[in-house]
Amino acid sequence: MYKQDEQAYHQLNKFVGTWNTAALIPSSDNNPEVKIKGTDRYEWITDGFFLLHTADVMIGTDNSKTHEIIGYDKLNHHYTMQYYNNKGNSGLMIAKLDDGLWTFSGDDLRFKGGFNENEDVFSGVWEQFTANKIWTHLMDIKLSKKH
């Protein structure tokens, strides 16, 4: 394995563990604010080459469950994030890390954020691509590692 690839897998290791998740979708137009609360868990699978990310959160009164496989694409030097949820939806996002800033990009969602100094909080901002073809703030999110 190349040194660059080793470093890429090392960065994923920071996610491993169980996290308390809290987010807030602010009110807009006629929609009230929506609180998100739950648990995210990351664990190595397939001999440490992929992460299984399991999310179980309440979005307001709606329970959302997602399974995601995260891997490193050595050819393109980015991470892939294939997800499946309990609403029958699936999709692919691409993740990159640049100077401590993580970006996740999908067709209509994107995220920017990172870890705190102790690597026990991962937080950032999600944006959504609207029908008006502009990126707008969707929510602030914070994952706090359980100790």
Score class of each variant (00 low, 15 high):
residue 132 N to Q: 12
residue 53 H to P: 07
residue 27 S to G: 09
residue 2 Y to I: 07
residue 100 G to V: 00
residue 124 G to F: 01
residue 97 L to R: 03
residue 33 E to R: 14
residue 127 E to A: 03
residue 91 G to R: 04
residue 62 D to Y: 10
residue 79 Y to Q: 05
residue 141 I to L: 11
residue 107 D to A: 05
residue 118 N to G: 05
residue 10 H to D: 09
residue 61 T to M: 08
residue 31 N to P: 00
residue 143 L to Q: 11
residue 134 I to S: 06
residue 94 I to T: 11
residue 27 S to Q: 13
residue 94 I to Y: 05
residue 23 A to E: 06
residue 20 N to E: 12
residue 15 F to C: 09
residue 80 T to K: 08
residue 15 F to N: 07
residue 130 T to Q: 02
residue 26 P to G: 03
residue 106 G to R: 00
residue 70 I to R: 07
residue 68 E to D: 07
residue 7 Q to H: 08
residue 12 L to K: 13
residue 93 M to D: 09
residue 38 G to C: 04
residue 143 L to M: 12
residue 3 K to P: 05
residue 107 D to S: 07
residue 129 F to Y: 12
residue 147 H to S: 13
residue 13 N to C: 06
residue 66 T to C: 15
residue 59 I to P: 01
residue 81 M to Y: 12
residue 47 D to W: 04
residue 33 E to C: 07
residue 52 L to C: 06
residue 60 G to S: 05
residue 14 K to R: 14
residue 73 D to K: 06
residue 91 G to V: 07
residue 49 F to K: 15
residue 6 E to M: 14
residue 42 Y to S: 06
residue 114 G to P: 08
residue 117 E to V: 09
residue 97 L to P: 06
residue 87 K to V: 05
residue 53 H to N: 12
residue 83 Y to C: 06
residue 140 D to L: 03
residue 3 K to W: 08
residue 67 H to L: 14
residue 117 E to T: 11
residue 31 N to T: 12
residue 138 L to I: 01
residue 118 N to V: 02
residue 138 L to T: 00
residue 97 L to Y: 01
residue 74 K to W: 04
residue 53 H to V: 03
residue 82 Q to M: 10
residue 115 F to I: 02
residue 13 N to W: 02
residue 89 N to M: 08
residue 41 R to Y: 06
residue 119 E to C: 08
residue 15 F to L: 14
residue 136 T to Q: 12
residue 71 G to I: 06
residue 22 A to V: 11
residue 69 I to S: 02
residue 76 N to P: 01
residue 95 A to N: 07
residue 56 D to L: 06
residue 105 S to Y: 02
residue 14 K to C: 04
residue 100 G to P: 13
residue 67 H to I: 14
residue 107 D to R: 05
residue 116 N to L: 05
residue 85 N to T: 02
